[in-house]
């Protein structure tokens, strides 16, 4: 199995992003997804900067994919999307159907985790459109994956989100701005303060969700590091690790070791929060089941 690094879902400074990716360039990750997928207002890196980064990473032997924004609302969103789709050098991960229209029949593409590929017929349709890889929707279980795998076309790759806080929902509203009592159009980029998102707790102070601009994530970290053998048996091609602000190279290394059949470093001290893996087991996503 290969290891991929998903797009950075948070808003980091330009310096922090550059430092992060220089660490990634040195790491053992095989595939790197780049670009802003959450909010069009975030601009510390522009498309040309992402492309520059993509070329550097590719020169170092990484496969690079540009990820498109998950919620496309305005003409200016579409304009950015068209530039990404037509970049000519790197394949694109489509995260909504507008991107699929721009890519279908023109270039091989990755069908991202937000495209709702839940069943065999839909998977077959995406393959016909030119998708060469799909990312399993987060809420689907290993049992559903088994059925999808049995039906996937030859050569079609399957990627599973295997580590990180899960992007569970998108809205037009920015919850970070709402918390700071600011309008979205004048958000002052307060999400820069929260390198791993803003914690939302219940009234009993139990961690529940994570606010990340217009995106809502789990508070817990999805972690399939105990299920590597099962993922391999299901012929999953790629495990996606979603970036966090610290220790990412160590987490990548631990997954690489586990994929090679070795124990790998424990992740308990590296995660930003305790683990969950309920979706994989077909139970509520927030639950954690030990491997069986």
């Amino acid at each position: 199995m290969k290891i991929s690094l998903g797009p950075v879902l948070y808003y980091w400074t330009r310096e922090a992003l550059m430092e992060f990716y220089s660490g990634i360039a040195e790491s053992g990750v095989d595939i790197v997804y780049l670009g802003e997928v959450v909010c069009s207002r975030r601009h510390n890196l522009r498309l040309d900067d992402w492309l520059g980064l993509a070329r550097d990473l590719a020169a170092g032997g990484k496969q690079v994919v540009l990820s498109s924004q998950a919620l496309i609302e305005s003409e200016s969103d579409l304009k950015s999307l068209r530039r990404i789709a037509a970049n000519g050098d790197f394949s694109v991960e489509a995260n909504e159907m507008g991107a699929v229209r721009l890519l279908a029949g023109r270039a091989p593409f990755v069908a991202g985790p937000h495209l709702n590929i839940y069943n065999n017929e839909t998977l077959a349709w995406f393959a016909k459109l030119g998708a060469t890889r799909f990312v399993l929707p987060l809420e689907l279980s290993r049992d559903t994956l088994r059925e999808l795998q049995a039906a996937r076309p030859a050569g079609f790759e399957t990627e599973v989100f295997a580590y990180g806080r899960m992007p569970l929902a998108f809205s037009a509203r920015c919850f970070t701005a709402r918390h700071h009592n600011l309008p979205k159009d004048d958000c002052q980029f307060r999400c820069l303060d929260d390198a791993d998102g803003l914690a939302l707790k219940t009234r009993e102070k139990a961690p529940f969700l994570t606010l990340n601009g217009i995106q809502t994530q789990s508070a817990l970290v999805y972690d399939l590091s105990d299920s590597i053998a099962e993922l391999r048996d299901l012929e999953v091609d790629i495990l996606r690790l979603s970036p966090q602000s610290h220790d990412m190279p160590s987490i990548i290394e631990s997954f690489r070791e586990r994929c090679a059949g070795r124990p790998g470093a424990p992740l308990d001290s590296l995660r930003v929060a305790p683990p969950c893996n309920g979706y994989w087991h077909g139970v509520p996503g927030m639950e954690y089941r030990t491997a069986n």
Binding site: L71, H114, P137, L138, L168, A169, F170, S171, P284, G285
Partner: peptide, 21 residues
């Protein structure tokens, strides 16, 4: 619905059942 419909898994995160599934 405050979330984009069809793009919200909050309910399955907590209960195992969502609008999509």
């Amino acid at each position: 619905c405050v979330m984009v419909e069809g793009r919200c898994a909050l309910s399955s995160y907590v209960t195992g059942e969502s609008p999509n599934t």
